[in-house]
Design a protein around this nucleic acid. Structure first.
Lengths: 251, 251
DNA sequence: TTCCTCCGGTCATCGTACAAGTTGCCCAAC
DNA sequence: GTTGGGCAACTTGTACGATGACCGGAGGAA
């Protein structure tokens, strides 16, 4: 047994995210930057120096720097050196999935989503073209159809929300909602937790009522009502999630 | 003619962001993925195949893949291959600074910020600890001091907003606001555009009045009023920016 | 059938070499 | 002394080859 259990199942692999030399080197350099020891505009050590400091080959150093370049943290200039990016406008917004362990983390993301969607609903009520209003109502109908065929309707649910975000005439809203949607965890799991079919039907019917109210506010060009309806809907979602989490424990 | 005019001055270099072989290779592969030709979970071509297809060395291919790995788009497994990430939870949210040319783009980001901050103000009114309320009012005082010494108070302005985001008891709000703050363009430029010192003073005084109303709503634990005050403040900002942009043309 | 071993393929890391670009220094010319 | 050109050293960009670590399947042994 030359190595301590590295045949671990996928689950443990996830927790220790396969840190190879490149990742570690990139993390080390990034720490120097974020820690302020390498201020914006400062020049990084040369590849040779980093090779010596980190004890790795040039390949590893270059791949690490390449990763930081993609991240927007570093810019390189041939013949001159590598520099900490002077303006951080290229550094993206991340939500680390590893740091999303607790229920509180999930609720935090849901609150962010609420903030976005409440405003999106209002903007949609103000600006949606007739076609976009049609898309919202169509998404509502599609979800009804999914429910009718005993589906969990998870995808249709999200599509309804996305239709609203798209109706804001502001591309940032659907893009950011798409991003958050990847983190607003296990809707599947939440719904799966509702074992009782009757309970499941009532749950979906309630969502549909809430959706309908939102859609009608948008169709009726009533931003204030759209805001209120969307807020109520998402607050209910948060409450439902919190209750399920308390009942079943962290998952 | 081996290379078309690449002796462009630094200014032009900025516009065409220094596309070396690695960047181009990474963009090519990323396009395959985002275009759906490489669906999630699919295996990428081997390094050898990509070398042949892209006509570059292995170094370049590896650095490109390293960049995509950092981006969360690809995961590699030694001995097995490189794969399109099955779940996109690591893919971050980006606002491409290159695509932020027009006034409309800037306004879109400001609307996103409005959505976040309106909700943040309400949450702060609900949840802020006494110390956090103190921090908000302290930020307001700091801005007053900056104005008194004829400063543009750009930083103090942002610090006030950040103090509110921090008072939400939800770390996502300050983090996301920090991110957006890097894109909410040239506040410096907007303020610099106000040449007249008297006009400048009135402008800052008005902001301070708006800030004060927000701060008092938070201190008074009135979420609805905090929402209203923050919305009014940021709508004014948007209007001011739009007016300046119309007056001075796109910058 | 089940288990083990082996082997080819693949990524990970290392090392070297050269090309391309930058910077500062030296030195000649004025 | 100042200025300008050009050279030299240094740094990143690209290419290539070699070896190690790891995976997955083929094939053989029990």
């Amino acid at each position: 047994m030359p190595k301590p259990g590295n045949g671990a199942p996928t689950l443990l692999r996830r927790l220790r995210p396969a840190r190879n030399l490149t990742d570690r080197a990139a993390a080390d350099i990034a720490a120097e930057i974020r820690g302020g020891r390498l201020p914006p505009g400062a020049r990084l050590p040369t590849e040779q120096e980093m090779m010596a400091t980190l004890g790795v080959s040039r390949t590893v150093v270059r791949e690490a720097v390449s990763a930081l370049r993609a991240e927007g943290l570093v810019v390189t200039r041939q013949g001159s050196g590598a520099f900490v990016a002077a303006d951080a406008t290229r550094v993206p917004f991340r939500i680390d999935p590893e740091a999303m362990g607790t229920i509180a983390d999930a609720l935090n993301v849901m609150e962010l989503r609420l903030a976005i969607e409440v405003e999106a609903a209002a903007l949609a009520a103000e600006r949606a073209t007739p076609a976009q209003v049609g898309a919202v109502m169509g998404a509502h109908a599609a979800m009804a159809a999914a429910i009718a065929r005993e589906d969990t309707a998870v995808n249709e649910d999200f599509l309804f929300h996305r239709a609203i975000a798209s109706a804001t005439a502001n591309a940032q809203f659907p893009q950011f909602l798409e991003f958050l949607g990847r983190h607003v965890i296990p809707r599947q799991r939440v719904r799966a937790a509702i074992a009782n079919p009757k309970e499941q039907r009532e749950y979906l019917a309630r969502i549909q009522r809430e959706h309908l109210r939102i859609g009608q506010a948008i169709k009726g060009r009533d931003p204030a009502d759209a805001r209120k309806a969307m807020r109520a809907h998402l607050l209910n979602s948060i409450t439902r999630y919190r209750r399920l989490a308390e009942r079943d424990g962290p998952a």
